[in-house]
């Protein structure tokens, strides 16, 4: 039996761990999360358990304990950078029990403005505090001319923009002293001056900057639907060996446009595309995002469990295929 090695080059060079299946930590769930954490700090060892590349332990779907059902948590970096009080208290408790990965929204890697050193300093401090093996943000811009738009805005898919982003990504990684994974965003309009396809643009950025890819499967699906493209061809066209993490989320169909609103459960076509990805690259660190009309914690945990089962089934199929 042959086992497909996960992202050999990037994972090996940067010691990227497989963390399993997680959920986003959101303020609405603070009380429920604290209630569901074990009373005593867990015995997970960040040096020996996950970060050596071993798989997380099997989970108990009938348990009410959070750590029995979820392997790790993702936080929105900016919600904890320079903040204390209850948000930091809850983060500290969670970090006692499971790995935490920081996912930013305002690095603004494509901005024409200089990288914000205040931002990077606080981000590095956060990464140090939670022992993050890598950090992530979006391949986009969210500020320009000293105005923060607080949205993930698409860049022109051009060689000029790709070089610009890659140069800044290298600077940011040097500052934070950890590998960076850039996420493919959802985009509703292709920007003027675009001379490439999205996959070509992403590949140019990732290869030039030597970054990881946080592959948002919902965004792939939404973009392909909105722009009449084939999601499987998109997967064919990006460097899958650089995928270090996957995002799953819900979207809504407005008729004229599919909106990536993170306001519902993961849709069936997105689960199918996720399974296709796992068949191609094997199990991958995965998180389910839910940011609007946030449901009870149990619903989010169920989504993470579906991700685990979907990946398990897809990987089994892939392994059986290879055996034949």
């Amino acid at each position: 039996m042959t086992t497909k090695t996960l992202n050999p080059s990037f994972v090996d060079r940067f010691h990227i761990p497989f963390l399993g299946y997680g959920i986003g930590l959101r303020r609405k769930h603070f009380d429920a999360v604290l209630h569901a954490l074990p009373k005593e700090p867990s015995h997970w060892n960040r040096d020996k358990t996950f970060f050596s590349g071993n798989s997380p332990a099997p989970k108990d779907n009938h348990s009410t304990g959070l750590c029995d059902r979820v392997d790790w948590m993702e936080i929105v970096s900016e919600n904890y950078m320079g903040f204390g009080g209850r948000p930091m208290f809850v983060l500290d408790r969670c970090a006692e029990h499971m790995p935490i990965l920081p996912h930013g929204v305002n690095l603004s890697i494509g901005s024409p403005d200089p990288l914000c050193t205040d931002y990077l300093t606080k981000l590095k401090s956060l990464c140090d505090k939670i022992h993050a093996p890598f950090w992530s943000d979006h391949c986009c811009y969210s500020s320009a001319g000293n105005v923060y738009f607080h949205d993930l805005l698409p860049l022109p898919f051009s060689e000029e923009a790709a070089r610009h982003v890659a140069r800044r990504a290298k600077q940011a990684m040097d500052y934070v002293e950890r590998p960076l994974a850039l996420e493919n965003i959802s985009y509703y309009a292709k920007m003027p001056y675009s001379s490439m396809q999205e996959a070509e643009f992403l590949t140019a950025v990732l290869e030039d900057a030597d970054c990881g890819l946080l592959l948002d499967i919902n965004n792939v699906y939404v973009n392909c639907q909105n722009h009449g493209e084939d999601p499987n061809l998109f997967l064919d066209s990006i460097p899958l060996s650089r995928v270090v993490q996957v995002h799953l989320a819900g979207h809504r169909d407005e008729g004229w446009l599919r909106i990536d609103d993170h306001g519902s459960a993961v849709s069936a076509p997105v689960w199918a595309l996720y399974a296709e990805l796992v068949r191609r690259i094997g199990p991958i660190t995965t998180v389910v995002e839910w940011d609007n009309q946030i449901p009870e914690l149990s619903v989010l945990i169920q989504q993470a469990e579906i991700a685990r089962e979907t990946a398990k089934a897809a990987h089994t199929t892939q392994s059986a295929g290879e055996q034949r």
């Binding site: 738009f149 607080h150 949205d151 805005l153 509703y188 309009a189 292709k190 920007m191 003027p192 001056y193 675009s194 909105n226 722009h227 004229w256 446009l257």
Partner: peptide, 28 residues
């Protein structure tokens, strides 16, 4: 559009970004 040229996705989708940014700012 007159300064940058049109988006191949059409004006409505291009203009949607102003709505998104406004909604984000007002939401905060």
């Amino acid at each position: 559009e007159s300064q940058l040229g049109p988006s191949s996705s059409g004006s409505r989708r291009f203009a949607f970004y102003r709505t998104l940014v406004r909604n984000d700012h007002h939401g905060f």
